[in-house]
């Protein structure tokens, strides 16, 4: 009987106590930091939306970002997506919508803003991507994203909005040494923009 206690009861009791203590500790820390983490995530999303709309914001200042965001940007639910828009004299002047897809190494989440007449890309930004740092990962660098500002969508019907130079009709530079990532990004942006415009026109 004594052997049974030493072999089973004590270890089980000990494990339960250790588990309980660590769990309470973690639950407490989690409770204390939930707000900070939620705020960080929200700030990141807001910065992205402001960036694609080409609205200036002070980076790192969560309060100021929130202020500017609520002042300019409104949102609505369409299907299972949240679409953001800005108004100019009570008329919607631009939309920002999420575009998701798969690139070379993993999934890519991006936001694209286009004018409400569907004629112009205002900006793009990547929320998350896992491309090779220094190669495909350079899609997150400013020089790459800035190329899309003011890109004319015009009367293109077949969804080939973005074409890399030097192909005929090219309007954006891809990343040398990261052809697969560049192509994947082109495909997912073209597809995302095409789908958004057709959905909006269909509504």
């Amino acid at each position: 009987m004594k052997d049974f206690k030493r072999k089973y009861i004590l270890p089980i009791l000990f494990t339960i106590i250790v588990t309980a203590v660590t769990t309470f500790l973690l639950a407490g820390i989690n409770y204390l930091t939930t707000d900070a983490i939620a705020l960080n995530e929200e700030t990141t999303l807001r910065s992205t939306i402001l960036y694609v709309f080409n609205i200036d914001y002070p980076s790192g200042d969560a309060k100021k970002i929130e202020e500017i965001f609520t002042q300019h940007v409104k949102s609505k639910e369409v299907g299972d997506k949240t679409i953001y828009y800005i108004e100019d004299r009570n008329e919607i002047s631009a939309y920002a919508f999420p575009v998701d897809g798969v690139a070379l190494w993993g999934s890519v989440h991006a936001y694209v803003a286009i004018s409400s007449d569907y004629n112009e890309i205002l900006g793009i930004d990547f929320v998350s991507q896992s491309e090779t740092p220094g190669l495909g990962g350079r899609i997150s660098e400013a020089w790459f994203k800035e190329q899309f500002r003011g890109l004319k969508l015009g009367d293109i019907q077949d969804g080939e909005y973005i074409v890399y130079r030097p192909a005929p009709g090219g309007n954006v530079d891809g990343i040398s040494g990261a052809t697969l990532t560049s192509n994947a990004i082109r495909e997912l942006l073209n597809k995302g923009i095409y789908e958004f415009i057709s959905e909006q026109r269909g509504l």
Binding site: T19, T22, L25, L26, I29, T33, I37
Partner: peptide, 17 residues
Amino acid sequence: LIISAFVIIVDIFLKAY
């Protein structure tokens, strides 16, 4: 158990701050 508790603390800390 103890190691994972500390790792989660680090993870939460980085996410928050």
